[in-house]
Amino acid sequence: MDNIKSIRKVESNDTEPKKRIQKGVSYAKWGYIFIIPFFLVYLAFTLYPQIKTFIFSFQKYFESGLNVFGPKWNNFGNYVALFTKSENGVVMIVKAFTNTMIMWLMGAVFQFLISLVLAVFFTSSRLRLKATGFFKAVFYMPNLIMASAFAFLFYALFNTVGPINQLAQMMGWADKPIDFISTYPWSTRTLVATMNFILWFGNTTILLMAGIMGIDESLFESARMDGASSNRVFFDITLPLLKPILVYVLITSLIGGLQMYDVPYLLTKGGGEPNFSTMTIVMLLNKYLSANNYGMAGAVAVVLFVITGGLSFLVFRMIRRKDD
């Protein structure tokens, strides 16, 4: 408050002596002092580890038992190893990237379709839905539950002796328990995608609603007066004007999706089963970390950093262009 007051004072009174102006400006130093703790924490716990990770990615550095191998310069050795075929004939990082993208897409398609429909319904001045606040809260609720709790719930429901299997056997749909979680790649992927969908569609709905509400209401009204159908309004007014927000939400969701970890990790107990078909990039990173292989884990982290960095840059550019 004091700060604002003094600035106002400075602005309102040009004839004040110079001293006064300097005093007003000197308040700015408090701003810097207040952000020092953040930067200290950032330097120690974010930037320093990031630089270290980058260095490790060029070193042979791992522990086996109580013995430490390295750190020894390995140039691009870790990256070459990362993009070399494993014993099972698969390049694990490519497999992990593909898995991550497939599971993200499976969830995201429904997430965006349904969120879009809900957002349009909730903001429509024509429908005037009642109790939208209640529904918004309910849709958003899953996002408040920890992903881990959610994964455990799905594990409990879908394992071979869980209620879903009991029901299926009781109703005569299956004569033997079906292993939804660790036998069929598409079944496990569907479970992961479903969980991510339930966790995130409420969040997307709220963001898209904010976007639609930002569109000038008079456009909708005049379109309706001209006799435009709801479909026409949606495709010719809502969608084009919502595009910037939609792309932003899509790309942030993609970045979040690339870092997919907790849900598939807990559902498959870290294994990425079946046949590594649900192993995401961060799960692969974690496999190297739990093996105390700092060099390879560093290389995976840098690859992930490059991909997300590129996508973030896209988002940045988009927002800037909108401002211009």
């Binding site: 791992f62 496999k287 093996a291």
Partner: peptide, 8 residues
């Protein structure tokens, strides 16, 4: 493959 990750 898994063993190679755990014990290179």
């Amino acid at each position: 493959t898994q063993l190679h990750i755990d014990c290179p």
